[in-house]
Amino acid sequence: MMNQPIKTSIPKPPSKIKNYVTLLLVLFLLWGSSIQTDSSLAELVAGFPNMMDLLNQMVPPNWGYFDNITDAMLETIRMAVIGTTFGAILAIPIALFSASNLIQNIWVFYPIRFILNLIRTVPDLLLASIFVAIFGLGSLPGILALMVFSIGLIAKLTYESIEAIDPGPLEAMEAVGANKIQLIVFGVIPQVAAHFISYVLYTFEINVRAAAVLGLVGAGGIGLFYNKTLGFLEYDKTSSIIIYTLVAVLAIDYISTKLREKLL
């Protein structure tokens, strides 16, 4: 059909060595990881009956147990509310000082950002275990952990939106001689307020999930009851806790997402 000779020369295919090397490297890393973690499919298969057994004991959940854990569930939500609120309040000045279009001094905003980055590297549960070591068992260490985590997240998201705002109004205000405070109140806040509230709600969603497990290290909330029920092998109660948490988290997520959609 198409048998006329090819006139121009056929171009050379680009080398694929890089792809092969990358693939090899990834395979090697995964193989090394499975050695390091003693992962074996055989063990999973062997353990599977145990797990089925566990699941069997978990259903049906102990419906009566809901009464016992309602207080803890409410405490969990309280912890998230308070932790997020204080975190959000403290995040405001930090975000303002990290925004390079407000504070032109690199000796101010770089160190603050560096500390924010450090904070965000420590997982909230580890923060909580440290605060438990300091303040003892209870919801205070949990709230503090959530607060620190919230500062890290909200301040970062907020300063990024401050840096993305339209510079026009700010320049116009500077031209008419506004000072820094006036600039922030009339130029910055109106432009980022909606974003800020949306970030706070988003952080609140994350914090509710986190608060539900903080109890595992003794930092208050419903997570405490995992240790209790698992310790006594009362798996039907454990599944009640899980279901209760799922329902609460999904409900809060739903409301918060709806609110965020309204805002933006």
Partner: peptide
């Protein structure tokens, strides 16, 4: 080869890769 011929016919053989 068929693919190269087709590209040749529409004059973009040099863009094959």
């Amino acid at each position: 080869n068929l693919a190269f011929e087709a590209l040749e016919r529409v004059n973009i053989l040099d863009k094959a890769y």
